[in-house]
Write a protein that binds this DNA or RNA. Structure first.
Lengths: 151, 151
DNA sequence: TCCAATCAGGACCGATAGGGTCCTCTTAGT
DNA sequence: ACTAAGAGGACCCTATCGGTCCTGATTGGA
């Protein structure tokens, strides 16, 4: 599995939408444009604001705007903002408060390297990468272009 | 988030245990040695057998044994055996059967590259790597007590 | 000054699925 | 034949997630 939350998926969509313009955009507008229910959009936006990825403008005609260009937003940040810190198991560094079978468990939290590898992978890909990849959408349905063939 | 299932964690523990000897080991024995409840051990073992990671010997004095050395078992295989194929979102290649907002969604399943990066990371780490990393176990237990209350 | 639009920050509920147990059947040693 | 052990399900319970809503706080405009 390893599935990440749907909210994170929404977050990516919303962030890309925010990148389209400079002036602030409100949750209702983004909802209408993206098809995501408004309360959910608001929830995601709040989480992103708390995570420092977007800035909010309160009051009438308020809304949100990106604080950094897409290329400066690694997906790891988005995931962290929405789902909290990336931790594969309960046994990983930090949340390893207790482990009922620690006396016998032969590899107590040995997931750390794995965790780190994933964090690394997630940090190396930015939203800009994901956005650009969406160009050959029509082709993908049939073949698998895989990498930028340009080389 | 990005949490993987606890069963997968168990699977790693069990696989490492199986690597200790050549002759088959039964679920009850592994349960006693690892502290994991027996029914759960059995469940994990069955999944691992279905995934081709372990071989089963039925009948009296039956049990399980590894089919490959730890170094030949990437974690990706374990995760796949327990949790099913690795797929971050519902929108990824393969399961992208339908998407209710596909008309508006500006990045339809753009998670593929991310997905692939993670798969790559997970394939490059084997159980042997995790096992070896567990040497300084004694130190970790003390270095990370409960809470940093002292300081 | 007052009102309305909009964000902030919760609480709240329903659905899903993961963790765990158990039951029955088949297989193979003794 | 009897018994120990795996195979392969069904099953329930709980945690978590997805989603909605409500009540303030803030700010621009009438």
């Amino acid at each position: 599995m390893l599935r990440l939350s749907k909210l994170t998926d929404y977050a990516v969509v919303i962030l890309v939408r925010l990148s389209r313009t400079d002036h602030v955009q409100g949750a209702p507008g983004i909802s209408a444009a993206s098809g995501i229910p408004e309360p959910t959009v608001a929830k995601v936006l709040k989480a992103l604001a708390a995570g420092g990825l977007v800035a909010s403008q309160r009051g009438a005609h308020g809304g949100y705007r990106l604080m950094r260009p897409l290329a400066a937003i690694p997906i790891a940040d988005v995931i962290t903002a929405i789902d909290g810190p990336i931790a594969l198991t309960a046994c990983v560094d930090g949340s390893a408060a207790f482990c009922e079978v620690e006396a016998m468990c032969p590899m107590r939290g040995r997931w750390d390297p794995v965790n780190e590898a994933i964090q690394q992978a997630l940090t190396n890909i930015t939203l800009a990468d994901m956005q650009e990849a969406s160009i050959p959408r029509a082709f993908r349905a049939h073949a698998r272009p895989q990498l930028p063939a340009a080389e």
